[in-house]
Write a protein that binds this DNA or RNA. Structure first.
Length: 605
DNA sequence: CGGACCGCGT
């Protein structure tokens, strides 16, 4: 762009020909025109060029102009803090507005230490921060997870009496949340009178980012009961995420309803969250339907669909969706590949998994992360290739984490390889993750091998470490209420009819050829005792309860915290056949759909 | 603002 063109454009922008043109007025128009030219720049290069040419024209720049330039330079989407700094340094007496702009610019560009340094400089020069300074500053503390600095800043907020500013309050809630000090977040939240929608959003978001899903739902309920119905879209997405993790399908459906009633067109983030929620709550069909009707799918949508199909055991379909994604010229990222690999692993597609792993590196140039290695160890392990899995771990260029070793351990349990299992456990203990589950798997493997001394030894070690494992349970939803069952449970009011039902079911099942499989009752007790215990596993109690309390033919959905044992798997297949019920069981990370005596996992567990 | 690997008590 030449000098004359800048000048002619400023005339065009600022001084229509029909206005009277006194020299001063024309100059003022030209100045404004220059400002809008600078504001409309699309890159820092363009900005620098235009700026240089305007300076050549010899305009007088007052501090007002300069601070406007700092704003443009620091906060536009192509922002350059180096250049913003150079203009900022030319301002003789910058005030809080200029300092705030610089802090916000540094935070936007993630140069957070610089943001804190500017704040220090501000204090040294005796300029008092205001309610626009603190939100940016607290965001820097949040992103740095610098609790100490955050507390200091909080103190400063108090000193200046700014604790009633709603933006400052929300930033404090957010900062403490990001620093994993949710108690302090809540303390700020509680102090606020007349909580606004933004306040509720901040505290719900803080709990969501820490994975405190139950608290999220409770806060959302509280918010609604206080008459605060119109939540922000982002809050509803957080709440949806909580529903997804907790399997709270009914609340998830309500949120879907809220979206449909209040927003004419759902955006891609909301749609993706809804799909994820439906799929992870067991309604694969509904998720698939929403996915197919999406007007524009992005990589997130494909990602949730692929891993969704994976957890439902539909490996081939997941690979099909993946090829669709490639056909649409969307390039897969590392997380999409985690979905693809876990799809292969859950469905036993060993060759496809290995091919995908190669393709990821050589066709899409993605460096495998520990998650990808974990998937592959799982893939080989489940398929019984234990030795290969171990060699694979040894050949990894990065340090294997606990999940990798635990996948191997699990494979060793499934394929009865105590020797390799002991190696895996040793590695797990070296990593010091203090996980009660690891001790239990090993002790159960010893029990399987009838090595009761070793069982006792492991249990003792576990007790010495103070590790306690929460009991296995099954949840079932009947008439909009969730009921929880643990093994041998007699705490339900209907327990006598439940146990009668169990008795009746057993009789019918035996008639159809069911034989109890006591091999996984890992206790040193006699066969009869084992059979008795097996009969009352939490999942069976939950099924009996659902059979009694729901109408014939209606589906039964069960959520468990642990994987189901072989016997419960076989038992549930028989029930689905004899009682003509579709039963879906969700464990920690996958689904089993039982129908007409067949399970969707095709017994590849 | 949204997506990720593994396992577990009687």
């Amino acid at each position: 762009m030449s000098g004359t063109s800048v000048l002619s454009q400023t005339h065009l922008l600022s001084a229509p020909n029909n206005l009277p043109q006194s020299p001063e007025l024309s100059f003022s128009f030209q100045k404004q025109g220059c400002m809008s030219l600078l504001k409309n720049c699309k890159s820092i290069e363009e900005f620098k060029q235009v700026h240089a040419q305007i300076l050549k024209l010899g305009f007088f720049w007052d501090s007002f102009c300069a601070s406007n330039l700092v704003v443009t330079c620091a906060l536009s989407n192509w922002s350059s803090m180096d250049y913003a700094c150079s203009i900022f340094r030319q301002i003789a007496e910058p005030g809080s507005f200029e300092f705030n702009t610089m802090i916000r610019g540094f935070v936007k560009n993630m140069t957070l230490e610089e943001a804190l340094l500017i704040y220090v400089e501000m204090l040294e020069r005796g300029i008092e921060p205001d309610n626009f300074t603190f939100p940016a500053l607290l965001k820097a503390c949040a992103l740095l997870m610098d609790l100490e600095e955050g507390i200091q800043v909080h103190g400063h907020v108090f000193k200046l009496g700014l604790e009633d500013d709603v933006f400052v309050q929300n930033s404090l809630i957010n900062m403490y949340g990001k620093c994993r000090e949710i108690g302090l977040s809540y303390a700020v939240f509680e102090q606020i009178d007349g909580k606004s929608i933004a306040t509720w959003s901040a505290i719900i978001g803080a709990h969501a980012s820490l994975g405190m899903w139950n608290e999220c739902l409770m806060l959302f309920g509280e918010m609604s009961s206080k008459g605060c119905w119109r939540a922000e879209e982002s809050t509803l997405v957080s709440v949806l995420s909580a529903c997804t993790h907790l399997g709270a399908l009914n609340l998830g459906k309500c949120i879907h309803g809220i979206f449909l009633r209040n927003i004419s067109e759902l955006n891609v983030i909301v749609e993706t969250s809804l799909i994820d929620m439906y799929i992870k709550c067991g309604y694969l069909e509904k998720g698939l339907c929403l996915f197919q009707n999406m007007s524009k799918k992005n990589q997130f949508a494909y990602s949730v669909m692929i891993s969704g199909l994976a957890i439902h055991g539909h490996g081939r379909e997941a690979l099909k969706v993946f090829s669709q994604m490639l056909e649409e010229d969307l390039s897969p990222d590392d997380v999409v590949y985690v979905g693809v690999l876990s799809a292969c692993s859950h469905a036993g597609l060993v060759n496809e998994g290995l091919q995908s792993f190669n393709r990821m590196q050589f066709e899409h140039g993605i460096e495998p992360t520990v998650q990808h290695y974990g998937c592959l160890v799982d893939l080989m392990g489940r398929a019984g290739k234990l030795k290969e899995a171990l060699d694979f771990i040894k050949s990894m260029p990065i340090k294997p984490n606990d999940v990798v070793w635990r996948s191997l351990l699990c494979a060793c349990r499934v394929h009865d390889n105590l020797e390799l299992g002991e190696i895996a456990v040793e590695k797990l203990f070296e990593l010091n993750c203090n996980n009660p589950g690891d001790y239990l798997v090993l002790s159960n493997m010893y029990a399987q091998a009838q090595r009761w001394d070793d069982v006792a030894r492991i249990r003792k070690e576990m007790a010495e470490e103070g590790l306690i494992q929460t009991a296995g349970f099954s949840l079932v939803e009947v008439k909009r209420k969730v009921y929880k069952f643990v093994s041998q449970d007699k705490s339900q009011p209907q327990w006598d009819s439940i146990y009668e039902m169990i008795h009746q079911m057993e009789w019918q099942l035996k008639f159809e050829g069911y034989l109890p499989d006591t091999s996984q009752v890992l206790l040193d007790v006699d066969e009869e005792e084992k059979r008795q215990r097996l009969k009352c596993h939490s999942q069976k109690l939950a099924i009996a309860f659902a059979l009694i309390n729901t109408s014939q033919g209606s589906p039964i959905r069960i959520t468990r915290n642990l994987r189901m044992c072989n016997d419960c798997h076989t038992y549930t297949k028989f029930i689905s056949l004899i009682y003509k019920r579709e039963i879906s069981v969700r464990d920690r990370n996958k689904f089993h759909h039982f129908k007409d005596g067949i399970c969707s996992c095709r017994d590849y567990k």
